[in-house]
Design a binder for these strands. Structure first.
Length: 580
DNA sequence: CGTATAATAT
DNA sequence: GATATTATAC
């Protein structure tokens, strides 16, 4: 299963021949930089037009290993778009502009680094580090093909550099073969950790990581895994993108990430590391691990957990060596926790699937099918659906209570308020009071990361428009509301990024969610209305929830009378019991 | 499939 | 120690 990395052909003089996409609108600048880069044996493909560069990337993304892009005050918007389009590549932005806001925005849009011009030789020479970083840290599924050889090369180099590593890796491979269904569970880590400490702990970590990566890659390849890009995008943004390449690569390629931020987030996701040792369920061997493999952070979880353990003995004892996990391993009959982390993205996919089906058609198997998330099981979906429904019910009941409380006083303020809307009217100027009717659900593990990531002192100086983050992370903002439909926001354009100024027919490529929103906007609205009506009909005793106009009292009485019903109990349970 | 409940995390 | 989340049993 594990490809023998030893057989890999080494990339001699590694950075040499690395293919660099260079994009500067100033022709002189392009030429100048190109020459510099070529002196360092990079292969440079230069463009002075964003669209040309974009087309090149989209035509053959794997032609490049890294992109060097100049941003200017004039082209920043388009450059940001470019960054988004080329997210899978490591991108270094260069600029004369040293404004923090610009820098931030570039990084936020996916740039790996922001280099101030003029470009020194040193700066240019080191751009390969970003390639390595990306090769290791991007999720398997979004890693451009061009970066895979990089990883292999680095792996090979590391192996050659360490005498006993090869053996260790073999051992690990065995361990993994034995446990190949559980890529990053406790036993796996425990097993590897049990081996005698090699020369340097850090190298050990790297090797382990490398192995993890390989195994995941293997799985992905053999599974022909689908890559729901929209789903992956955010996590990538939230985790690996934030890592500093300088920290990672300058000292030693091996120390991929030792900064505390990552460790902190590792703490938060420690749960993900803690897994069943002896996952008894062999009926769907690949699925459990595949979920993790399909998540871009999965490898990072491992990395971070490993790093974490080396930094934090207490945690290590708990998460890696705890008797608990060993016991579980021997027994192998306890519940596996957290095979699936319902990240906001995953949840969004879920919600979208549910809505696409309509609430009454939304059964686990169909949702699962629609979600197209590799490795997710029907059980996972069912479980989540259960929670989703309960939440939904809860919300509806609350609203109902409110209505009942005011039912006797049609003129009361509450009653007038009553036409409750699950979503704002399709009007640009309408905004939902946050948490008013339906509190948007934000995954607890998401925001802290973001906060940490941007929590450095300079951050608050530049206040990023909130909408921007929404756009980046939650294109269908409402999609994350529990039990609340995903609502297209017609006419709402938080900032100029939202609507692409460019004529490329590519916008849907980079932002699937926008596409979804636009393409399904009315469809979703219909679904919503449909669902609401069904809900109302199935629970006639409940108040009409969504601003549906109740029939006039006269009309109701007339109809009842027509059906022969003359007296109506105050709380008639069902209008569908028409018999006398 | 849907719900209840156990196991675990926070 | 209550609550939330997820897996699993029914």
């Amino acid at each position: 299963m594990i490809p023998s990395t030893i057989d890999m052909v080494l990339w001699k003089d590694f950075p040499k021949g690395l293919r660099v996409l260079l994009l500067c609108e100033d022709p002189n600048s392009v030429a100048e930089t190109k020459i510099k880069l070529e002196k360092m044996d990079y292969s440079v493909f230069s463009y002075s037009d964003i669209q040309d560069a974009l087309e090149a990337i989209l035509r053959k993304a794997e032609s490049f290993h890294v992109a060097l892009v100049e941003v200017t005050v004039d082209n920043s918007e388009r450059t940001f778009e470019f960054l988004e389009m080329a997210r899978d590549l490591p991108i270094i932005v260069i600029s004369n502009d040293c404004c923090l806001s610009t820098t931030m925005q570039c990084i936020a849009h996916g740039a790996a680094e922001f280099l101030q011009k003029p470009l020194s030789e040193d700066k240019l020479r080191n751009i390969w580090q970003h390639v390595v970083h990306k090769a290791f840290n991007a999720s398997e599924s979004v890693t451009p093909k061009s970066l895979k050889p990089i990883k292999e090369t680095v792996v090979s180099m590391l192996q050659l550099d360490t005498k006993d590593s090869e053996e260790k890796i073999k051992s690990q491979s065995k361990a993994e073969d034995a446990e190949k269904n559980h890529v990053d569970n406790d036993e796996y880590k425990t097993t590897t950790d049990r081996y005698p400490a090699p020369s340097t702990p850090k190298l050990k970590q790297v090797e382990r990581m490398v192995n993890d990566e390989n195994s995941q890659e293997n799985k992905c390849l053999t599974d022909g895994m689908e890559d729901p890009k929209g789903f992956l995008e955010v996590r990538k943004f939230a985790s690996s993108e934030s890592k500093s390449v300088d920290d990672a690569c300058t000292n030693s390629i091996g120390v991929l990430n030792t900064n505390r931020d990552a460790l902190t987030s590792a703490k938060q996701r420690e749960a993900a590391c803690e897994e069943e040792v002896n996952s008894a369920d062999s009926s769907r061997p690949d699925e459990c691990s595949a979920v993790k493999a399909s998540s871009p952070t999965s490898s990072n979880v491992n990395i971070e957990c490993n790093l974490q353990s080396s930094f934090d003995d207490k945690k290590k004892n708990k998460s890696v060596f705890s008797s608990d996990s060993l016991t579980r391993g021997s027994k192998g009959n306890k519940k596996k926790m957290k095979q699936v982390d319902w990240t906001p993205e995953l949840h969004k996919r879920f919600v979208q699937a549910v809505e696409q089906l309509g609430i009454d058609q939304a059964i686990p198997s169909k949702i699962l099918e629609l979600m197209k998330v590799e490795g997710l099981t029907r059980h996972n979906v069912a479980s989540h659906l259960q929670k989703y429904r309960m939440n939904r019910r809860h919300i509806l009941l609350k609203e109902d209570d409110r209505k009942w409380q005011t039912k006797g006083d049609p003129n009361s303020w509450g009653y007038i308020q009553r036409p409750l809307m699950a979503y704002p009217p399709l009007h640009p100027t309408y905004s939902v009071p946050p948490g008013h009717l339906y509190a948007p659900w934000v995954h607890p593990s998401y925001q802290p990361h973001g906060a940490q990531m941007w929590g450095h002192p300079g951050f608050h100086a530049w206040h990023p428009p909130l909408e921007m983050w929404h756009w980046k992370t939650y294109p269908g903002v409402q999609a994350d509301a529990w039990g609340c439909p995903v609502i297209p926001q017609y006419g709402y354009s938080p900032n100029s990024h939202q609507r692409l100024p460019m004529n490329y027919n590519l916008d849907t490529i980079s932002d699937r969610n926008r596409e979804t929103k636009d393409a399904n906007g009315f469809h979703l609205a219909e679904e919503v209305a449909d669902e609401v009506v069904k809900e109302a009909m199935s629970k006639p005793w409940l108040p009409l929830p969504l601003g549906l106009k109740p029939p006039s009292t006269d009309a109701v009485l007339a109809e009842l009378h027509r059906q022969g019903i003359r007296t109506v109990p105050p709380c008639a349970r069902s209008a569908r019991a028409p018999h006398r």
